[in-house]
C-alpha cells in the first residue's frame, strides 16, 4: 500500500512541478492543483493507520480500538482540501481577469507595464 502511494505521490509532484515550469498560466494553475493533491496524499501516508497500523485513539479503558483509521490526518486533509479549493477558485478568477486585461496567457509577455 505505502509503495503504491509513494509512487502516486511522486508522479503527482513530478507532474505538478513540470507544469509549474511552463509558461502558460493555465498549465501553471493545473500544476498547483496537482501539487496540492500530491500533498494531500502525502499527509495521508503520514497517518499512523498506514505507517504503524494503529491510530492514536484509545477507548475509555486506554485500549486501542481495532480497525479504526487515523482521524487526525483525515481532518488535516479535509482542511487542506477546503483551503486549496477556495484558493484555486480565486486564482482561476484572477487568471481570467488577467487574461481579459492583458489578452495573453503567456507569463513572459504578461508584464505590468505597457
Amino acid at each position: 500500500m505505502i509503495l503504491i502511494l509513494a509512487i502516486t505521490i511522486g508522479c503527482l509532484f513530478a507532474g505538478g512541478f513540470y507544469l509549474l515550469l511552463r509558461r502558460s498560466l493555465v498549465k501553471l494553475i493545473l500544476g498547483l492543483i496537482l501539487l496540492s493533491h500530491g500533498v494531500n496524499l502525502l499527509i495521508f501516508t503520514m497517518g499512523d493507520g498506514v505507517r504503524r497500523g494503529a491510530p492514536p485513539i484509545v477507548d475509555k479503558n486506554g485500549v486501542a480500538p481495532f480497525n479504526v483509521a487515523d482521524p487526525v490526518v483525515q481532518a488535516l486533509i479535509l482542511t487542506a482540501i477546503v483551503i486549496s479549493f477556495g484558493l484555486t477558485a480565486f486564482i482561476l478568477t484572477l487568471a481570467y481577469r488577467a487574461n481579459q486585461v492583458t489578452g495573453s496567457d503567456d507569463l513572459d509577455t504578461m508584464q505590468g507595464e505597457g
Partner: peptide, 11 residues
C-alpha cells in the same frame, strides 16, 4: 493591469 500581473506572481 499592474495589479493583476503583480498579484498573480504574489499568489
Amino acid at each position: 493591469r499592474a495589479q493583476l500581473t503583480g498579484g498573480l506572481k504574489y499568489v
